[in-house]
């Protein structure tokens, strides 16, 4: 149908343009409030990844790669894992592996609960970029198969 432009129809593109920023923002909200409200690093990371996948579905893969390419996603994935491990090892320095040092949790306080917000951010990096990479690989494999058929 639309041979000139990659991606879906005008309606989908317009709606995506309006919502994608909100989805990303919501993901960041879920991650940063993970320790005081439902949600956390995993759920927030999935939502952040979904915002990029959304762009990929609506505008085609090139548009998504312009924002975050595979190298960067792979880098963030390893970085997230190392961050998480580093936080755990820092706990070991002050007593036990994975010890939650620092301040105690306060209800409705964003800056509380010691290492937990940091761990949430690390997990969000790991899960978000990991999920994005999985979808990218599925997309690329499908293209390869089509080329073979031709």
């Amino acid at each position: 149908m639309n041979t000139q432009e990659p991606g879906m129809t005008l309606i989908v593109k317009t709606i995506t343009r309006l919502t994608v920023g909100l989805i990303l923002l919501f993901g960041i909200y879920i991650v940063s409030h993970g320790h005081i409200s439902p949600g956390g690093g995993f759920a927030g990371g999935v939502i952040i990844a979904l915002s990029f996948i959304h762009i990929m579905l609506a505008f085609g893969k090139e548009a998504a790669f312009k924002r975050i390419n595979q190298k960067a996603a792979s880098f963030f994935e390893s970085l997230g894992a190392i961050m998480f491990l580093t936080i755990a090892i820092l706990g070991m320095v002050s007593g036990y592996f994975f010890l939650n040092f620092g301040m105690k949790g306060e209800p409705f306080e964003l800056f509380s609960a010691g290492t937990m917000p940091l761990s949430n951010i690390a997990i969000a990096f790991k899960v978000g970029s990991g999920l994005f990479m999985i979808v990218v690989i599925l997309v690329l494999l499908k293209i390869d198969k089509k080329e073979e058929e031709k």
């Binding site: 792979s74 880098f75 994935e77 390893s78 970085l79 894992a81 190392i82 491990l85 090892i89």
Partner: peptide, 8 residues
């Protein structure tokens, strides 16, 4: 740790 440093 060495696994993820490797991949990085």
């Amino acid at each position: 740790a060495s696994a993820f440093v490797n991949s990085l």
